[in-house]
Design a protein around this nucleic acid. Sequence first.
DNA 1: GCCAACGTTGGC
DNA 2: GCCAACGTTGGC
Length: 158
Amino acid sequence: MAYWLFKTEPDELSIDDLKAEPSRSFLWDGVRNYQARNFLRDQVQLGDQVLIYHSSCKPPGIAGIARVSRTAYPDPSQFDATSPYFDAKSTADNPRWVAVDVQFEQKFDQLLMLDMLKKYTKLANMPLVRKGNRLSVMPVTDDEWHAILSLKALSPQD
DNA sequence: GCCAACGTTGGC
DNA sequence: GCCAACGTTGGC
């Protein structure tokens, strides 16, 4: 079992969307970066836990946890000419991009904000906190995972 | 809205 | 196979 962090723009899919339908498997599509694709295709396993990171919003941060409910399969959006994720160079015989499914597990009481995560030395090696990094699917080490969960416990409740 | 950083593309 | 140009990401 492994740990991951997936980025999402909450306008498109947020932790609240997952929470609203906790028994539903949500298609995690639109990954169009080869390094991220390779993680999805080759390493993400059923039952893996995923930190759900909200990006391009204010403030950005980790909003909760999901679980992988289906491993990699061809991302349908690559074949959909009306989708922003359409890829004319991808074929059904040899699909270029993959998706997985995720299911809600937990919403954090408080968003773990990026500016706080950046101050935490145990997380300094995460691509997430490194300037200019755009990786949208990244592995999370056991140490990082536990550090993040301990931050969650420390964050003020309301 | 700006723009730095990065990944991808394509000419050569 | 290099690398300049371009498009995108994503924090600010």
